[in-house]
Amino acid sequence: MLEVEGLTKRYGSREAVKGISFRVNEGEIVGFLGPNGAGKSTTLRMITGFLAPSAGRVRVADIDAVADPFEARRHFGYMPEGVPLHEEMRVHEHLRFRAELRGIRGRAKLDAAVERSLQQASVEDARDRIIGQLSKGYRQRVGLADALLTDPPLLILDEPTSGLDPNQIRAVRSLIRGFAGKKTVFLSTHILPEVEATCGRVVILDAGRVVGEGDPRELRGGGGAVVVRIVGRGEPSAYEAAFGSLGEVTAAIEAAPSGPSLVVAKVRTRGEDASERVFEAAVTAGLKLRELSVEATSLEDVFAALTTEEPTNEEAA
């Protein structure tokens, strides 16, 4: 549905996007993850034709989006960063204008497109309100309705939940998840839980380069590494000695708010039976355990590991 190949954007001598390639298959919901300033918006703007790429190719629904931008634009709905809308218009007026611009003709068809997109983005109750007076959550959904007007097979959403409160975030995410299987969605975000909550696949961008790609759950697995957390009484050195043979161990006394202080140890090891082996080692060493749990590697760890190689904050989006 979307293919990007060697896409590059240069501003003078500075390369904001450095020859990235990836593809989004039909029906997928793919997250485009990266810290602020990684080049996500620039990439989306090149895909949608707002910016001309310095080099590289973009194909939308098998149409060359650089050579034939008009035809390509008929196949996607785009919600730019910050959801720009005409503040002075009413929601249905804005949507009607956008529908006309996007080539829908005739009163009946326009009305039908507006009503359907209002419903798909669940903002029917705001249809007669002035956009400038809407809350951010509503604006975001009006932006989504705008992207949905032509019922396009591909949705390109730039930071669809930025600036929303937790309830609004949940609502927008569940809307996006609802498109699974029906539409292809490519959404950018700098928030990890967003990817885990909504996306089937993630492309990680850092400093203009794709640094990782895959299933968020697989990336989280980090190649089978598991961290087992043990809480018990005794000396940290005893824990280090007991688990040293299993993998990397950190152990420290953690002051408890009440009662005796406990040792919290973390063992980084591999394998499905990691927790069982840690338990056996603890029994063998005669440690008095209170807790034993498996900590999942968070996507945050993966993200940090992938994106901390060079400073990224200098480059603006």
Partner: peptide
Amino acid sequence: TSGTLEALLTSPVG
């Protein structure tokens, strides 16, 4: 300034 130009220029309009 408001960003609506981006929406306009990514519509199938010359």
